[in-house]
Design a binder for these strands. Sequence first.
RNA 1: CGGGACGUGGCGCAGUUUGGUAGCGCAUCUGCUUUGGGAGCAGAGGGCCGCUGGUUCAAAUCCAGUCGUCCCGACCA
Length: 576
Amino acid sequence: MIRYTQYLMPTTKETPSDAEVVSHRLMLRGGFIRKVASGIYTYMPAGLRVLRKVERILREEMDRAGAQEVLMPAVIPAELWQESGRWDLYGKELLRFKDRADREFCLGPTHEEVVTDIVRREVRSYRQLPINLYQIQDKFRDEIRPRFGLMRGREFFMKDGYSFDMDEEGAKESYQKMYDAYCRIFRRMGLDFRAVEADTGNIGGSSSHEFMVIADSGEDSIVSCVSCAYGANVEKAECPSVAEKTVGSKDAGPFRKVETPGRRTIEEVSGFLGIRPDELIKTLLFETSVGDVAVLVSGAFEINEVKVRGFLGAEWVRLAEEPKVRELTGTPSGFAGPVGLSVRMIADLSVRSIVSGATGANEKDAHLVDVVPGRDFEPETYADLRMVREGDPCPRCGAELRVSRGIEVGHVFRLGRKYSEKLRAVALDADGKEIVVVMGCYGIGVGRTAAAAIEQHNDADGMIWPISIAPFEVTIIPVNVKNADVAAAAEKLAADLDARGVEVFFDDREERPGIKFKDADLVGIPVRVTLGEKNVADGFGELRDRKTGETVRVELSRLAEEVMKMVARKKAECGA
RNA sequence: CGGGACGUGGCGCAGUUUGGUAGCGCAUCUGCUUUGGGAGCAGAGGGCCGCUGGUUCAAAUCCAGUCGUCCCGACCA
């Protein structure tokens, strides 16, 4: 049992001015976290309790799935990262520093190198595999832009796990086990989530899924099919292939140049020429790690840079800026076109639907009309390169796709041999042959998950915790602690529940009732018992559900029993 | 890194335009009253106005630099 008078949970009525999203605001107001520097926080007692609850669920499910907990260091020697090649690739997000002897280190943002190092040293035989190691550990990433409290911090707790198998088949099984464990984890935390197909980013690997908590404040956009189970990050979402040529005139004559003074954007040009945006072919110039590339797309769509990067197999791609555009096309941006362009050229599938259309003329204040793909220019290839849109057909079943916002709380990757090859993590198979092991990696942001839970469960009065991760299960409010009967009844109930293993938060402060009620709502403890003078004198107490606001009067003799029932019911709702 | 804004008691803010030595609300402490949805009265404590330098008889206020923070964008396990 925790007594409020002996607990540091400094709640505030007013919202700190730098908190923008609801989870950040409520965590600050509830006294759960305090900021130390940008993206760096102290977890106050109540906030830490929530994190520990999340961690407990993580441990239970990871252990259940056969993973073993380890704890790796936060400080990692540069050599390991140089071995994997990421020392040079990871960029400024990796915080680097030197020790007294001038040796280089970094603060680990993720631990593929360290865990692979362990496995290559300790695992010799196929008999020791598969193995799955995880940890819950403090990570540091020097984010370009930390924001929204625990949602995107620089220092944060992450559950990161890594699987090692002898072959792809086994790796796939390990991946599936983690995928299933993740579903159980987020279900137990009462979250509305989707597992969606995702880009592998700079972790690398062959395929991955992100676990997204649906929330408008989410930083990611995801699409999901209204009919089947397909879901994907918009960065990854497949767009339908286009077979039919439906746009423009089949008997277009030779292309013609038209004056388009000052018209650069799709809206300006299509408006000026009196045509639809999808009758334009947009030409975007990219600088990439594999050279300059022109990317074509129908004017009705946007290019997806992640897909472009993936298609090219490039480390990075970047939309070219004015001077570079001028160098490649001879004109300021806004007038680039594929005709006569001597740059490597690829086109999105949407361009296939165009029989004839308008393009930039590579000349200031001019565009070309009646341009025919295949006749007037020929891209190296057509590929899926555009951004998906709400209403697009599902690539699996053809039904409609919806776009929603999500918070990425977990991410699972099939890494293949990317790290095990670089670090030479090998084991002998049954024939005595050396095999490079196949890896998977699996992460969950602990604080971010807690923040996501608030984003999804709150109202005007404060947080509404799912009981599985609430800082406490029950709060007891004696309305007036100076009334001896009230105080006695409250003490008795608190001791009673405590003895039954319930996590009780006892508001024994000499505060006015209004303050106690407001604080209880703010902190969002799922079950509240109120003991007022009149009720206690009549032999009653009051039981209230934070989520529904539903309140029932219960005889004092049955109160503990009823509280237990309500707690049990709430636990069952979480499947905990 | 580009754009915008802000740094004044613990929190939220005013004061800066027009320089004259710091104020309001909440919170905190003491006393009395009050006790079912952020009480009332009386009193008290707490601020080198982010930092450094400059202008001036005089700087929270004007100028320069610097640090920090937030928002939008780019970026992103």
